[in-house]
Nucleic acid binder design. Structure first.
Lengths: 142, 142
DNA sequence: CCGCTCTGTTTCATACGTGAAACAGTGTAC
DNA sequence: GTACACTGTTTCACGTATGAAACAGAGCGG
């Protein structure tokens, strides 16, 4: 009998991800409610990790987060350990953006912390990047 | 306001997949119930497509089927987007490793600089990561 | 025939997730 | 001041998914 007690839905992570994303965008609960079709009350409960959202709402919210559902519904055994399938190589000058995106996606960080870290990283990276050979014009976008 | 009415869970496909898999293996509903932790009655309902299973049961059953949850919960597929092709979701605590790997892959940095940056990042990240939150145990029974 | 064991299905009471609406702060304007 | 508009949270009635148990067959051995 496969462990009937344990909840396979990571409500805490989902809640944190939503709150982070929402605050980053400067949206209210009711704004997100309008966008996703999930009521503000339910959103509040999910962000605070009380109870467990039903499948429809999980689908709506992960879609809104542009996040894979597996991230939240961990029925599968995800070969724990350094899953380097997550490591991808990328256009080199986009590094700060990539890091920033990753930081934003990291629900262990508050939005403020994520922003601070990405700023720190951006500065440090640009400081140290290509001190001598940045003759090649292609640089950070935006 | 995203379609509030439409169900985002493909119960029919899930039910069919389960029944096919189960009959292929020559298992009874109660066998699968024992393996997955989903009761036989619920399994019967799901196989016949009546009602909508909750998130936990979907997780359990897709795991048993070794089927990606996206197959059944079609909130939306990650297709377009702002060049997040390089941005992937990753194991939560592996963030510093990811960044380090990226830095190492960056040809604009000397190995020394890459190492220094990754060290800096690692320290800063661990410093700010996960301030107080821990997994709040929410299993009342067992 | 009866009894037994298996099957899938269907009650049934319970638990709980849900959205609307009420609530409690917090600004901000007048 | 006191209105007003916003915020997040909580209350509430309701719908519904759930598992245990009851049910209805089917197949088989005595």
């Amino acid at each position: 009998m496969a462990d009937q007690s344990k909840s396979l839905v990571n409500t805490v992570e989902l809640g944190r991800a939503i709150r982070r994303n929402r605050e980053e965008m400067g949206l209210s609960l009711r704004d997100v409610a309008d966008e996703t079709g999930v009521s503000a009350s339910t959103l509040s409960r999910i962000e605070n990790g009380t109870g467990k959202p039903d499948a429809d709402n999980i689908a709506r919210l992960t879609a809104w987060l542009d996040m894979p559902v597996e991230r939240v519904m961990s029925g599968r055994k995800t070969e724990e350990g350094t899953d380097n399938s997550a490591v991808v190589y990328f256009p080199h000058e986009a590094m700060p953006d990539i890091v920033e995106a990753h930081l934003r996606a990291d629900r262990n960080l508050t939005p403020e912390t994520a922003k601070a870290l990405s700023e720190l990283f951006r500065v440090a990276y640009q400081q140290f990047s290509a001190p001598g050979q940045d003759a090649r014009g292609r640089n950070k976008r935006k």
